[in-house]
């Protein structure tokens, strides 16, 4: 195991019945980074995270987290990991300040200042009843409770789901502050691509149980290129374009998205014999969606057919 990685999985695989949900995952999270795990619902992100956290047994393969096998984490290892799941469970009868007291009694290295600084970002008062908080505020209390235990690694499964803009900003600020220029590590799964673009060093894209992209965010951007091709039929269906991720129709032309374009790509594009073929700039979001949109189709066709058989 590379000591610079806080999470490292080796061919991590999980079946539910006959259906493979996570397949041969070789994934690592470097210490001090903020890594965004992206993918459609059902791509296997949560299942992968639950295996990494040791809450679910892999069908095969293994994973190490903070240098230990996920399957035999001791309480003293767990205390070094902050884990928050979507939904943000809190005891409804508590006030926010009771959550703080609860955390203080539970965790050995609890920081009261951290807790109050975090809820303040989310605009929450200590005397508020948990039951009456908005979804965004509940996320704030949940996050405050998680990071005030002073973990080295924060694992957040879709924390931004359904958050208002103020809470999203507070979440981003809190994560950047926690990471503090690379002192501590964050793994976050999310659908909020503009937040991911802001705060992450690295991204991983999961499609139908596999990791298709795992690199620095800037490298991802510079390795994906797109062309606008004027053609009567989909240029993705005929000819072979090396590195093709996705092609989709935009008004009267096709936008073809390609990974790691090279001379072979260019000559393949030329050989399409299209009316015109112009390079176009794309956004981070468009590049990610190219991967996800492709998977949606193979998802419904492949897994659907497999499940039916």
């Amino acid at each position: 195991m590379n000591r610079d990685n806080v999470i490292q999985s080796d061919r991590l695989t999980r079946y539910f019945g006959k259906r493979v949900v996570v397949q041969d995952l070789n994934f690592s999270v470097p210490r001090g980074s903020i890594v965004g795990l992206l993918g459609l619902n059902g791509a296997g992100k949560s299942t992968a995270i639950r295996m990494m956290m040791g809450f679910l047994t892999p069908t095969r393969g293994r994973c190490e987290i903070l240098g230990r096998n996920s399957q035999d984490l001791r309480p003293e290892d767990r205390v070094r990991i902050g884990y928050a799941v979507e939904g943000h469970f809190l005891y409804p009868w508590m006030k926010v300040q009771d959550c703080e007291a609860f955390g203080r009694d539970t965790f050995p290295r609890w920081s009261r200042e951290q807790f109050y600084a975090t809820i303040d970002r989310f605009g929450i008062a200590p005397s508020q009843k948990v039951n009456w908080l908005s979804r965004g505020q509940r996320a704030g209390v949940s996050l405050a409770s998680t990071i005030s235990s002073d973990p080295e690694l924060l694992v957040l499964d879709d924390p931004a789901l359904g958050l208002d803009p103020v809470s999203r900003r507070a979440l981003n600020e809190t994560l950047l502050d926690f990471n503090d220029s690379g002192a501590r590590t964050v793994l976050i799964s999310s659908h909020m691509l503009d937040d991911i673009e802001r705060i992450c060093d690295r991204i991983a894209i999961m499609v139908a149980g596999r990791i298709l992209v795992d690199c620095k965010l800037d490298d991802f951007r510079s390795r994906i290129a797109a062309w606008s091709i004027e053609s009567s039929s989909d240029p993705g269906t005929y000819g072979r374009i090396p590195g093709l991720i996705h092609s989709h129709r935009r008004s009267h032309s096709w936008v073809v998205t390609v990974a790691n374009p090279n001379d072979a790509t260019l000559s393949a594009l030329e050989q399409l014999g299209a009316v015109s073929c112009e390079p176009v700039d794309i956004t981070f979001e468009e590049a990610v969606i190219a991967y996800l949109a492709r998977s949606r189709r193979s998802d419904t066709f492949l897994s659907g057919a497999r499940a039916a058989s």
Partner: peptide, 9 residues
């Protein structure tokens, strides 16, 4: 990545 068929979204 692998080559694959396409869809629009």
């Amino acid at each position: 990545l692998t080559k694959s068929d396409l869809t629009t979204k």
